[in-house]
């Protein structure tokens, strides 16, 4: 039961994130939704890396030669870095739109349509 807890958290976070992205009108809140979605995916990747009774892949004082492959951690690190770049770019878009349009309400940001 408990080993499913991270995955339940992933599903809950995903639902919260998607609801935020779809229902919130403020651009910053939508971006927060995207960040939560990223966290959910990162948590998913990290929880995949857990092996019960596994040994962390740190060679100093390792008790045996069989260790857990640290790939999920590496993936998560990469994903976090990409997430930072994504957030930075999104927020800079928000600043420019706030300056030029005078609003960051999504319903106001629709000069391109049809």
């Amino acid at each position: 039961m408990f080993w499913n807890l991270p995955l339940i958290a992933v599903v809950a976070l995903t639902i919260i994130a998607l609801a935020t992205i779809v229902f919130k009108k403020n651009l910053i809140k939508v971006f927060l939704g995207i960040v939560i979605l990223e966290s959910a995916v990162n948590l998913f990747l990290i929880s995949l890396g857990y092996r019960e009774g596994g040994i962390a892949p740190i060679y100093t004082n390792a008790p045996s030669s069989a260790m857990v492959l640290p790939t999920p951690q590496a993936l998560t690190l990469t994903s976090i870095v990409i997430g930072v770049a994504t957030s930075a770019l999104l927020l800079s878009f928000a600043i420019i739109i706030w300056k030029k349009y005078g609003s960051i309400d999504i319903e106001m940001i629709r000069r391109l349509k049809e």
Binding site: L27, L90, I97, R111
Partner: peptide, 13 residues
């Protein structure tokens, strides 16, 4: 005038 940023925003989200 912000319109190109709007397009980029939609694409990127």
């Amino acid at each position: 005038g912000g319109v190109a940023v709007e397009a980029a925003l939609k694409y990127f989200v």
